[in-house]
Nucleic acid binder design. Sequence first.
RNA 1: GGAGAGGUGGCCGAGUGGUUGAAGGCACUCGCCUCGAAAGCGAGCAAGGGCUUGCGUCCUUCGGGGGUUCGAAUCCCCCCCUCUCCGCCA
Length: 427
Amino acid sequence: MLDIKWLRENPSIAQEALKSRDDGIDLAPLLELERHRREAITQAESLKSEQNRLSREIPELKKKGEPVEELLSRISEIKGQVEEALNLQKSLDDRFQEMALALPNIPHESVPRSLRKEDNQVVKEWGAPPQFSFPMRHHLELGEILGLFDFERGSRISGSGFPIYRGPLARVERALLNFLLDQNSDAGFEVIGLPYLVNRETGITSGQLPKFIDQMYHVTEDDLFLIPTAEIALGGFHRNEILQESDLPLRYTAYTACFRREAGTYGIEERGLVRTHQFNKVELFSLTSPESSYEELERLRRQAETLVEKLGLHYRTTLLVSGDLSQGSSKTYDIEVWLPGQNRYYEVSSCSNCEAYQARRGNIRFRRKEGEKPEFVHTLNGSALATSRLMVALLECNQREDGGVNLPEALHGYLGGMKSLEPQLTS
RNA sequence: GGAGAGGUGGCCGAGUGGUUGAAGGCACUCGCCUCGAAAGCGAGCAAGGGCUUGCGUCCUUCGGGGGUUCGAAUCCCCCCCUCUCCGCCA
């Protein structure tokens, strides 16, 4: 949600900024509707005020023992008008809310303006793509050799896109999750355990609802939604709160399973673990004052990069152009690891500053000083990290000629001495 | 799922139809007092929104939504949440 007052006062700046994200956005109807809405409010409130004033005269007349019939008929007359005005206001307001909730955030000034994701800027590269002196294997092949996946039974019990990890890989993922949480915790992020199902209001807070409802698994019986990322649940964590300035920044990290319907996406080039309906992810989430949120964004990015570095994976960091930003973000860095099997980089982390976009939707505020007006906080989120693609990278990048895979040193302590995945001798 | 109790301002807590946005207390802010502080005394202290250059003024809000009424924190209905007991269950 954007600041409607700001929008009203800076229509051309806003329009231009939004066009840089999506050509199709036209603010004019929204602003027009907003004007009508305010007129309707003024009208309804002045009528209501009159009704209230007349009502207050009744006890006085009664006290004096004078008749109230005439006054009552005047009131009932005005009541009809009040009701009519309120209905108009309500319908304008509903339409306005609907349009306003659909608007994406304004890109930060440091974000390159372009609608083409090919224009995303690589701002950092670390390490180099692995070179193989033998025929490189796709992670599915390695999985076959090492007995790591069971896609068939995964689809038997759930459907396609619900992979099953077996044997050592299941343990490697657990090691990864623990490693990631420990690292984040050491970096000052509070580890919290979250619900995976959230209510509608929480979905709206993060910007996921109402627009992307078709991408979420929806439990209609209870009107709950399976989270596509822990960010959604974390965004709702402080909903409707007024925090103290001294509370900020608040830093959280959480592991959750993530659920995405991925409606409309094709999976042919993304066989295996690259795109699935359910995956595991550790998330970072910060709430800060407006003036420190961009500093915080760099912190999140740095934290995520450090994790990839400790795992020894080649990556690059890109600054997304305006047209590639997600709904709520003002500025986003993607961290992408190289997947030899796909012959391209794939996102393992996305770090975004949503500024006040989510805070406004979820009414998350803070007060600088006793007696001062509350202000909206800024919220930031970053994956640190998503494990399925990480595991693809670990498998494909660290493979040996015999099909075995060496595991990074950072995980050894979490694996009870296991340092590699070895080809099975029996089948 | 069944029975009961409850949900009021940053917190505690009064309030069963009429200037109650809400007594009282705590916390907080300012002033007096004091060398200074505490105590004491006095004053202030909800959020959102409309109109207004401003002073200000009006509207909404006592878990959420509907209803009754000229008027609802107070009465009625539905829902949500918390607590206790029972049932069921990882």
